[in-house]
């Protein structure tokens, strides 16, 4: 019986799952859209693993990361629940031990992680605004009537990217509409958009940070070769992209879970009905919204309560 470790990264746009062996090799991986329903997405991934895993492998620990880490963590009875910044750093370092800078642009957020001698020395995350992230690119692709998957290859056909305001998504969007109406070529506009994403990132998230080589670019947007090329042009250096770049968070948290005590993992989460419901405490004007996670009819976890007054309603159920 070989031991294996499961890591799941539940982002706002996509959900990633990996199973690794004790030498950090990826045995199985799966990448699907979250579509606003993390529980369903995770069930789908677990189902896929259940059908494809070989019989001599036993899952002994589970880690979760990403914005729905807590919810999925309590459903899977995870051994470790970790924020995505640490998970990404650990995952990337397991494959590229010399890496100095991680650029990560996902669906809703973007971050920069600086690493020195294998430890995280600094990081930054976009402030509470989704400017220049994947969500922006896909909404603009829709506006221009093209598939977001072709975005990068179209951008590469342009020799003369249209300048588009990079400061803020709202400005970028009105700039884009304006330029389109002025009759600029579509491929120039698309190349300009890719450039504005890179500029926006460097001006906001990476502002004042020292970007040292080697640099790796991850997250959904790294699949867009147009943006990768813009980064390379601006930084004037080679940027590494990995075909497993989207799995680094899941990989990292799977590695982190290895140190935790072993658990029995149940693949049959599809047999249970998981649901969430919320209740307003109502004991004071704060009116905290307490969220309950139910497995069939039994409450397995709750959060959102801040004070002893609310403990009454969480105990009663």
């Amino acid at each position: 019986m070989k031991k294996a470790y499961l890591g799941i990264d539940i982002g706002s746009i996509s959900t990633k799952g990996v199973i690794i062996d004790s030498d950090n090799n990826i045995l199985l991986s799966k990448y699907i859209w979250t579509e606003g329903n993390p529980i369903k997405a995770v069930k789908e991934i677990i189902e896929y693993f259940k059908n494809n895993i070989s019989d001599d492998i036993k899952i002994v620990s589970v880690g979760t990361t990403g914005s729905a880490r807590r919810l999925i963590g309590s459903i899977l009875n995870a051994s470790i629940i970790k924020n995505e910044i640490t998970a990404h750093a650990i995952g990337t370092l397991s494959i590229y031990p010399d890496i100095k800078t991680i650029i990560e642009i996902g669906g809703q957020d973007s971050k920069i992680i600086l690493i020195d001698n294998g430890i995280v020395t600094d990081y930054a995350m976009n402030s509470l605004c989704a400017a220049g992230t994947g969500a922006f690119l896909s909404s603009q692709a829709k506006r221009l009537g093209i598939d977001v998957n072709n975005f990068g290859s179209i951008a590469l056909t342009s020799n003369n990217p249209t300048p588009i305001a990079a400061r803020c998504t709202v400005f970028a969007e009105s700039d884009l509409v304006h330029k389109a109406q002025m009759g600029y070529n579509k491929n120039d506009i698309i190349a300009g958009l890719c450039k504005s994403v890179a500029l926006n990132y460097l001006n906001n998230v990476a502002k004042g940070k020292k970007i040292a080589e080697p640099i790796i670019f991850q997250g959904g947007v790294s699949k867009n070769i147009g943006v990768v090329k813009s980064f390379e042009d601006i930084l004037n250096t080679k940027i590494i992209t990995d075909k497993n770049g989207h799995l680094m968070g899941a990989l990292g948290v799977a590695i982190l879970s290895k140190d935790k005590p072993e658990i029995e993992f149940d693949f049959n989460i599809n047999n249970y009905k998981y649901s969430t419901n919320s209740k307003f405490c109502g004991k004071c004007p704060n009116n905290c919204e307490v969220i309950f996670i139910n497995k069939d009819d039994e409450i397995i976890d709750h959060w959102g309560n801040r004070c002893p007054r609310g403990e009454k309603i969480t105990n009663k159920n």
């Binding site: 970790k82 640490t86 001698n117 430890i119 020395t121 990081y123």
Partner: peptide, 25 residues
């Protein structure tokens, strides 16, 4: 006046990991 503090908690947790690893090193 945001009503959710999830984003803040994520950043705090990452900050905690960062200073902890630095100290251990």
């Amino acid at each position: 006046s945001e009503t959710s503090n999830e984003g803040i908690i994520t950043r705090l947790e990452a900050f905690y990991d960062l200073i902890k690893y630095r100290k251990e090193k």
